[in-house]
Amino acid sequence: MQTHPTYSSLVAVGDSFTEGMSDLLPDGSYRGWADLLAGRMAARTPGFRYANLAVRGKLIGQIVDEQVDVAAAMDADVITLVGGLNDTLRPKCDMVRVRDLLTQAVERLAPSCGQLVLMRSPGRRGPVLERFRPRMEELFEVVDDLAERHGALVVDLYGAASLGDPRLWDVDRLHLTAEGHRRVAEAVWQRLGYQPEDTEWHLPMRATPPPGWAARRVADARFARQHLLPWIGRRLTGRSSGDGLPPKRGELLPYEGPA
Score class of each variant (00 low, 15 high):
Gly238Phe: 07
Arg249Ile: 11
Gly164Phe: 09
Met136Pro: 00
Pro127Lys: 14
Arg191Leu: 01
Arg131Thr: 14
Arg239Leu: 02
His202Glu: 10
Asp145Pro: 00
Pro127Phe: 12
Gln226Leu: 10
Val171Leu: 11
Gly233Asp: 01
Trp231Met: 09
Glu251Lys: 12
Ala152Met: 08
Phe223Gln: 05
Ala152Trp: 03
Gly233Asn: 00
Gln195Asp: 14
Ala207Glu: 14
Pro211Ala: 09
Gly159Leu: 09
Ala224Gln: 12
Ala185Cys: 07
Trp189Met: 02
Asp144Arg: 08
Pro246Cys: 12
Arg173Thr: 04
Val155Gly: 08
Ser240Thr: 07
Gly212Asn: 15
Glu197Asp: 05
Phe223Asp: 03
Leu203Lys: 13
Leu192Phe: 08
Val155Ser: 05
Ser241Asn: 01
Arg249Ala: 14
Asp172Gly: 03
Asp156Lys: 08
Glu130Met: 15
Gly242Ala: 03
Glu130Cys: 08
Pro127Arg: 15
Leu253Glu: 15
Leu146Phe: 08
Arg135Lys: 09
Glu130Asn: 15
Pro196His: 10
His175Glu: 07
Phe223Met: 02
Thr208Lys: 13
Arg239Ala: 10
Glu200Lys: 12
Glu138Phe: 07
Glu197Asn: 05
Arg135Gln: 06
Arg135Pro: 01
Glu148Trp: 01
Val143Ala: 01
Arg183Ser: 05
Asp243Ser: 08
Lys248Trp: 04
Leu192Met: 05
